[in-house]
Amino acid sequence: MAPHELATLYAQLKTEFSAVNPDLQKCGQLLSKLKVGLVQAGLFLPQGDTNLDDLIITREILEIGAFWSIRAKDVPSFDRYFSQLQTFYNDFSSILPPSPRQYPVQGLNLIRLLTQNRIADFHTTLESLPPDALSSNPFIIHPVNLERWLMEGSYSKVWSAREEAPAEEYKFFVDSLMGTIRNEIASCEETAYDSLPVSEAAALLFFKSSNDLIQFAHQRAWQVDLLNQTVLFVRKDEEKVAIPKQKMIVAALEYAKELEQIV
């Protein structure tokens, strides 16, 4: 593919993507063509000395690709674009001018890790970000706060923060995040309450109507008393702990063996 062809494709993608209602399918086609072109131009996995402007354009294409994957609800594809962008953000950070989309992309990645409950990866990624971004960049603060509230149990804050997403793409993750939160809250309620009025339980779980709640209650096998309009949480009796014979025998034999070696 000739360089000018690449340039026209890039221009097409840029105009299409920045339109008010971008045609996602068309963007996807353009992106896959562009990727082939980049591989042929040796820019897909840049090595050695490459033109600075080319690198910036490659980075932009990949960034658009990352956003496009989120809009097209294709998380694995986002993952791929993100790992390719890592090279540009880390290894070329000294020669390339910082990208305005770097923090939105990294913030999106953080949210993704959070919704997939990959907390360890979340923190590892966080550690590699500069500390001032952590306290001042809105794209990063958002996921960081969400994680903190989740850990504390301030679920209402997470709920209220869902509308404050700093970028359009963040909202894609809101739904799955809400699912996670509901399950968390539900498991808390099971242990912390004996019973709850249906309306209150719905409010705690952020359901708009009690019908939604009743459906949810069935999923979790809660008893709903429709007469008194209460949800009863049946406590599982703690089963009696049996003596772990196997383990104890193994341990005792192990001690005997070791003792024999010492004496």
């Binding site: 301030s154 809250i185 309450y193």
Partner: peptide
Amino acid sequence: EDAEYIVGKAVRDGVIEARVDHA
């Protein structure tokens, strides 16, 4: 509201032995 969720989580995580009386 936060306090209620936090206590609930603490109970679930086994940090405390308690019940919440919502009413």
